[in-house]
């Protein structure tokens, strides 16, 4: 039966000699979703990608990409995949355009389509003015951008990104953040992205898996994951010299940091926030600033990975 599962990992285990890299991970990627795979260094992110690409053979479990075993059918599934890996993987003595030409040839694009796709890919990553420069003269960020151009060249059905935000400038980061939801929405492209830049993952991913030591600690929709232990806080910075007054009035469950002159009050909703702020103002406490803090992916990530230690 055909399913919408683009990638399916079932109880996949992998070892590098005596070191276990993956301890039976299971997950699936649905068509058109952006899936974040986050975890600390050495947790098995890159190994997962290499297994997905049919480059490594897991010693246990099964892997299917486009309903096929990538180890045996890479020639069929490879052209449907675009990848941007940790190392840009460029050919040093070719120009950017020649480099993309090699890949368009491998994807068997005719010359008209090839030209169109190459121009489009170079323009998306902002390298159209550098297309005739050799890649060994590129900066790290430019190399990453060219690697992204290669990834988009064949309009893939599945995009695999391994730490795409490493070593790139703010402009390229913003481009990637705009581009991925756009291709996912307009072309129905599925995106698998690994990173330790949690802010970016939180911004674009539909579902997120938190991985540590080769195991998935949590896997859910972004909102569910962030709301499962959701707490809202209001952080009120007060003017110094009001410690006694504040200590006598802060509600239970709240904290006052007298060295930073910061009151941290847990709130349930907007109304309770307004009530608390009004209460403080009514007591005559002089306020410098008010900020609100919501449980972020980062809070969830650290609470889970710290708990696991």
């Amino acid at each position: 039966m055909m399913t919408d599962k683009i990638v399916q990992f079932s109880e996949v285990k992998y070892r590098y000699g005596p070191i276990t890299a993956l301890r039976g991970i299971s997950f699936s990627l649905e068509a058109g979703e952006i899936f974040g795979f986050i975890g600390p260094n050495g947790c098995g992110k890159t190994t997962t990608i290499r297994i997905m690409l049919g480059l490594y053979r897991p010693y246990n479990g099964s892997v299917e990409v486009f309903n096929k075993n990538p180890l045996l059918n890479l020639s069929q599934i490879g052209p449907k995949i675009g990848m941007m890996l940790e190392q840009p993987g460029l050919f040093s003595f070719l120009t950017a355009k020649e480099y993309l030409n090699v890949y368009s040839g491998i994807y068997r694009m005719c010359s008209a389509v090839s030209k169109l796709h190459i121009d489009e890919a170079l323009s998306v990553v902002g390298l159209e003015n550098y297309q005739d420069r050799r890649t060994n003269t590129f900066s790290k960020g430019m190399k990453q951008r060219l690697s992204l151009a290669r990834c988009l060249l064949n309009h893939p059905e599945l995009i695999i990104l391994d730490e795409p935000f490493d070593g790139i400038d703010a402009e390229t980061r913003r481009k990637i953040l705009q581009l991925l939801p756009m291709v996912s929405r307009t072309r129905g492209t599925t995106v698998f992205i690994t990173s330790h830049n949690l802010r970016e993952i939180e911004l674009i991913c539909d579902r997120i898996a938190i991985v540590k030591n080769g195991s998935i600690l949590a896997l859910d929709r972004r909102e569910t994951l962030c709301n499962q232990d959701s707490k809202r806080f209001v952080l009120i910075e007060v003017e110094p010299g009001q410690n006694d007054m504040i200590s006598n009035m802060i509600p239970p469950g709240s904290e006052f940091n007298d060295s930073q002159n910061l009151i941290r009050i847990e709130i349930a909703d907007d109304e309770s926030r307004n009530v608390e702020i009004k209460r403080i103002l009514d007591k005559g406490i002089r306020i410098k600033s008010i900020n609100e803090h919501k449980t972020s992916l980062e809070d969830i990530y650290f609470s889970m990975t710290d708990k696991d230690q």
């Binding site: 890479l74 890996l85 993987g89």
Partner: peptide, 18 residues
């Protein structure tokens, strides 16, 4: 060796080329 150490072989083989 250049392509092996620069990681260029990975995306190349990832295309499914023999």
């Amino acid at each position: 060796i250049r392509e092996r150490s620069s990681g260029a072989l990975i995306p190349l083989l990832g295309t499914g080329i023999k």
